[in-house]
Design a binder for these strands. Structure first.
Lengths: 260, 260
DNA sequence: AAAGTTCTGGTCGACAAGACCCTAACCTGC
DNA sequence: GCAGGTTAGGGTCTTGTCGACCAGAACTTT
């Protein structure tokens, strides 16, 4: 709520402090940070930028910037993503947290809203920009502390990983990691890398193709890798990738639902 | 991130706008709103307050207020909850979203961070305060539009409901709805009301008591209701209520996990 | 041609979840 | 005190899902 119920300066209830006067609100800076995740070399990577100014000069950080007064938070995140990568992919942007500890920025009071973006390999994009101040780093290096980040960005990245693991289960975000067409092995690698699990290839195939609207065979086949092997079928994402995955809370038939 | 990599006023990359100067950031008001949910008369209710001032004077709204510069967002939410209900229950406070559309408050640019709080029946607390400006209303009345809310609070409540449904599955938030001791029928009613489903009493019992650390029998029995019936055992919440419920993503044995 | 690698389909068993039954323990009303 | 109603608690059976494992297909390199 924006103002409490009583007049300004008057305690609204017994024992509680007086309201703030809405015309004299405490000002904050509001920023939007975007954790950009992608698969690279079979593991999960994040796009980080190197800070050119104090504080935390020279350290790695999540890309982000100030929210502008005329835009929504989602628009600000979309703009920041486009500025960093050139990718216009609003559908893959998910807000997952707000951070406002008083001492998180030593200069001033900053509240930041964090977004998660999942892209297919952005290696070429990153290489195209100034390679000195943007790089893909394995998230494991961030989580273990091998690379340490500016501000409270470690906490934000941790929360982002947590979120993408949940998203992977309840939405079809997995296809965002792979290209327009993909093999089931590629898709399975996404689940295995994000969840850090080992999945049986045959069972995975069955689960995915059984759920209809998820993957659509293209009829074409992928070229086998250097090691040879039978060529895999190429699939593309279906239309049901945002309606919940093969692993769901409710039973398949939905018989437990009573109304709406 | 708080500042981009390049110097102020200098485009950081080809084709992207110049950075904002961090010393001339656009100021925002930051508020914290708390959606307080509770079970009342077998259905899900929310605590709303009636606005005493313009804009939206006289309409229902979520309780909330300005974040203070020296407190964290979590502390601000905890303070707002205490001011409204007198309850000190930080463990049940969950942040679930930030809202910053430019036109969401007609007076000024306000970014609000929304929290979800789950309490056992607060009817007595609400009655103790000025009943004219705070009330428990069924969430169904809010969602159907029977009661309409100030600002974008309808959207916030909708998101809160969405969130509590997920929380109910992955955490032990269900016990927050009931008292310190409870019958399994009471607990089951929480799931049924929040998820809007019908659960078999026998199967529910088995699932809950099989998972250890969830409910602990007290040995005592509840008094049957007015209609009679066999008296139910009283349970209290175990210690595992925040480690994931009987319904989980990973199989019980956790055999699929490979490392950590 | 042989061996290796990967994909794809099949089968089997373990286990969880739901449907449905019956009994136990209390109430109210007569 | 007894009959009938109501709710709790326990048992069983069926069904479906998921993982483990095996075998064949299709391609590679040597």
């Amino acid at each position: 709520m924006e103002t409490k119920t009583s007049g300004a300066g008057v305690p609204s209830r017994a024992g509680v402090p007086a309201d703030y006067d809405p015309s004299r609100f405490p000002p904050f800076a509001v920023t939007v940070d975007v954790v950009i995740l992608t698969m690279s070399e079979g593991t999960l990577h994040a796009l980080l930028v190197r800070r050119g100014e104090a504080p935390f000069q020279g350290m790695w950080a999540i890309p982000g910037g100030f929210k502008r007064p005329a835009e929504t938070l989602d628009e600000a995140a979309k703009r920041e993503l486009a500025e960093e990568t050139g990718v216009d992919a609003a559908s893959l942007l998910t807000q997952f947290g707000a951070y406002g500890d008083p001492e998180r920025d030593p200069r001033m009071n900053v509240v930041t809203v964090a977004y998660l973006a999942v892209l297919r390999d952005v290696g070429a994009i990153v290489a195209g920009t100034d390679a000195a101040d943007a790089a893909l780093v394995p998230v494991s290096d961030v989580l273990t502390g091998t690379i340490d980040l500016a501000f409270d960005h470690l906490r934000i990245v941790r929360d982002a990983i947590q979120r993408v693991r949940v998203e992977l289960e309840v939405t079809g975000i997995a296809t965002a990691f792979v290209g327009a067409t993909f093999t089931l092995a590629e898709l399975r690698a996404v689940y295995e890398a994000v969840w850090n699990v080992q999945l049986d290839a045959a069972n995975f195939r069955r689960s995915v193709v059984a759920e209809d609207g998820w993957v659509i065979p293209t009829g074409r086949r992928a070229r086998p890798g250097a090691a040879g092997g039978r060529p895999a079928e190429l699939y593309r994402a279906g239309r049901a990738w945002n309606h919940g995955g093969p692993i769901r809370r409710l039973p398949r038939n939905g018989k437990r639902e009573v109304q709406a």
